[in-house]
């Protein structure tokens, strides 16, 4: 099984620890992981901004980087969803299709491919889970409260394997945090208001830690938390699951 690690561009630059944790988590589970070093970005920042036409270069580079692997795994539901929905290459659509079908978000790779049933790690603290919308609704990492289907959550399933962890319930568990890519600056007022609603939900439930499947959502919420000097620590789910946090 050849597995490549796809590290979102902003994680590479600002959250190397999240990528390291992801790599270690996979290695702990016996997976041999490669990091193709020419990888950059999935192209989502341009595409969501309405400039899909500018993503051809990113797409080509992405396909070049990840062709030949059985699985491409990434600690971001949002970037994975973008690749699954929008990775194309007019000059080599077959290669694009192969990559599209082989890309996995970290949690779903763990639950669906590796079929992880137990994790030998512990974590002390009251933890709130923010499932990024693109992962939750887009990749269906978890059921959404709008749809009348049985509850499930792949990230929650994994967190519940962690010893000593205490997951806190939330009033609006799957409400969007307001990051939204360029939305967080073009609609700064609403974006921050949405983030603040999430944070007050965590505070009301005495959460000590906020975790999630997407560092982008967490970066936005962490920015608000730090500005307001609130006692909430922010960790990517990989950092909890790898046991090094």
């Amino acid at each position: 099984m050849r597995v490549a690690l796809f590290v979102p561009c902003y994680v590479d630059q600002f959250y190397p620890n999240v990528a390291i944790a992801t790599m270690q988590l996979l290695q702990n589970l016996g997976v041999d992981v490669d990091f193709p070093e020419q990888q950059t970005c999935c192209g989502q920042p341009m595409a969501n901004g309405g400039f899909e036409d500018y993503t051809a270069g990113c797409n080509k580079n992405f396909i070049r980087s990840f062709t030949g692997y059985d699985y491409v795994v990434s600690p971001s539901g949002s970037c994975v969803l973008h690749v699954k929905d929008h990775l194309h290459d007019a000059s080599n659509e077959a290669a694009a299709t192969t990559v599209r079908t082989r890309v996995y978000e970290l949690c779903e790779f763990l639950t669906d491919v590796l079929k992880v049933k137990q994790l030998d790690v512990s974590f002390r603290g009251r933890v709130a889970l923010h499932q990024g919308c693109h992962g939750q609704r887009g990749l269906q990492l978890g059921s959404s409260s709008e749809r009348m289907l049985p509850f499930f959550s792949k990230p929650m399933q994994l967190l519940q394997m962690v010893k000593d962890i205490e997951m806190v319930p939330l009033l609006r568990g799957d409400e969007c945090c307001g990051f939204g890519g360029t939305f967080c600056v073009t609609e700064e007022a609403v974006s921050a208001a949405m983030g603040n609603s999430k944070i007050s939900d965590y505070m009301q439930h005495n959460a000590q830690v906020l975790t999630g499947t997407d560092m982008s959502c967490l970066m936005h919420q962490e920015g608000l938390i730090r500005r307001q000097r609130l006692p909430i620590r922010v960790l990517h789910i990989a950092e909890i699951l790898c046991g090094n946090s």
């Binding site: 969501n48 919308c133 609704r137 959404s144 799957d174 307001g178 890519g181 939305f183 073009t186 609403v190």
Partner: peptide, 8 residues
């Protein structure tokens, strides 16, 4: 553009 594309 007045959306985060959350999909709700």
């Amino acid at each position: 553009f007045a959306s985060t594309l959350c999909g709700s």
